[in-house]
Every structure is written in structure tokens, then in C-alpha cells.
Write a protein that binds this DNA or RNA. Structure first.
Lengths: 105, 105
DNA sequence: CACATTAATCGATAATCGACGATGTTCGAA
DNA sequence: TTCGAACATCGTCGATTATCGATTAATGTG
């Protein structure tokens, strides 16, 4: 596979795109994990989906500019994309807080 | 048509549903208009879509618990739903602010 | 080198979504 | 009472999305 994954220009990302990407339970879960700013591998997300399906969700977040994906050997590390945090700080913070609140219920 | 439109129980609304509903330019525009807390009629939203398509978007927002729809005679008034504002205050505020910022660009 | 691991991508399928025109209902006006 | 305006809903369409299994690529490991 291409060792370089395509990440969109953050300026080209629209708010609607971001919200649409966040509007899915699986992807919200991924965001809640990478919200700590660290890199994570697949094992950190225990979703019971086919591997290819999970890859798809990661790609949606990546295409929305929210997630940074780095390949190292056969491993894949994902983390919150800094430019996204800068550009959508308030939205991401409030969404992640609401997600925690909902999960805690 | 039924003079009473169905509005979901606000407790049954999930964050993912809300974000998914907000993840569309037309619906973001509607939200930005009703954010003032007042009631609005169709003429306040100048979208160049078929009437039925606009109705569809209104219904999506209504089903996400975000919008209150009141019929009076042949007119339809829509406004921000108070329970949604209470439950998702931070998310709505940040999203609407980001929308304004994006539009102002 | 052969083989297992990790994960993107491809191809298929089913479900959902955005858009539209047509229809039906309610109401106000002539 | 008949007409028109306003708007929800229905049926349909093409496009997108979610899911999966299979394939492929890269890299470890025996």
C-alpha cells in the first residue's frame, strides 16, 4: 500500500464535512480516543467491525481533516490532526465533552 | 396534513444524530437563522430548492430534536427547540460560531 | 526464503440520503 | 363554495454510504 496516505488541505475542509464525519457513533468513539493527543494503533479501538470497515471510518475522518495517519512498517498510527484542533477547537471540545457526557449516562 | 407534527423525545436524541443532522450546508443555514430564538417562516430562508426538498431538511432537523415546528393556518413557523438548546448548548454555540466564521471568510 | 501480520484498497451489495414532482390537506380569500 | 396558497408527505431517481470478503502491499519473523 502507499506508504503516504492523502491528507486534505485543512483550508479545503468545510464545517458541514466535519460535522458529517463526526455524526457516526464509531467515528465519535475514535475521536474520543485520539482526543488525548497521542498516537494510537488499532488495538486501542475495540470495535467489532470488519477490518476493512474500520479502515473506511478512519478514512472518512482523515478526509474530513480530523485525523492524522502515519504508517510505520506494517503498523498504522492515528492521532488527532493539529490543524483540525486549531481550526475547529471549540467545536471539537464541545462535541467530545458531549460525547463523554452521553457515554457516562 | 396533520396539524400536529411529530417531535421526538429529546432524551432519545443522540449526539451522533444531532451532528449528522447538522452536517449539511442547507441545514446549517437553517440553524443559523433560527439561532436567534425567534420563529421564522419559509421566506426567511432563501434556498433555491424545491419546496418538498426544503420540507425534507426541516424534517431532518425536527427528527434530530433541534427544531420546533408549529403550524398556524396554512403557515408553518419554525424555531430552535428549547430542550435542544439546553441539552446541546455548547455544541450548538460552537457550531453556529464556526458557521458564521466560515461564511464570513 | 517462506510465512504470518498489519492494514489499505477493490468490488459487491444493501441501505440511506438528497433531490424532485405529484398529491393531498388545511386554511384564507374571492 | 370554489379557488389558490402553504406546506407535509409519498414515490421515485440517482448518488452516496456502510458493510463485508477478497486481494494486495509492505514488513516482520521463523
Amino acid at each position: 500500500m502507499p506508504r503516504e496516505l492523502a491528507h486534505p488541505d485543512i483550508e479545503a475542509v468545510t464545517l458541514a464535512k466535519v460535522l458529517s464525519a463526526l455524526g457516526d457513533p464509531v467515528r465519535l468513539h475514535v475521536m474520543s480516543i485520539i482526543a488525548d493527543g497521542n498516537e494510537h494503533t488499532r488495538k486501542d479501538f475495540d470495535v467489532r467491525l470488519a477490518q476493512s470497515t474500520f479502515s473506511h471510518h478512519i478514512k472518512v475522518l482523515r478526509d474530513a481533516g480530523l485525523l492524522l495517519q502515519r504508517m510505520e512498517g506494517t503498523r498504522c498510527y492515528v492521532s488527532l490532526r493539529d490543524e483540525a484542533r486549531d481550526r475547529f477547537a471549540a467545536v471539537l471540545d464541545s462535541v467530545l465533552a458531549a460525547d463523554r457526557a452521553e457515554r457516562a449516562k
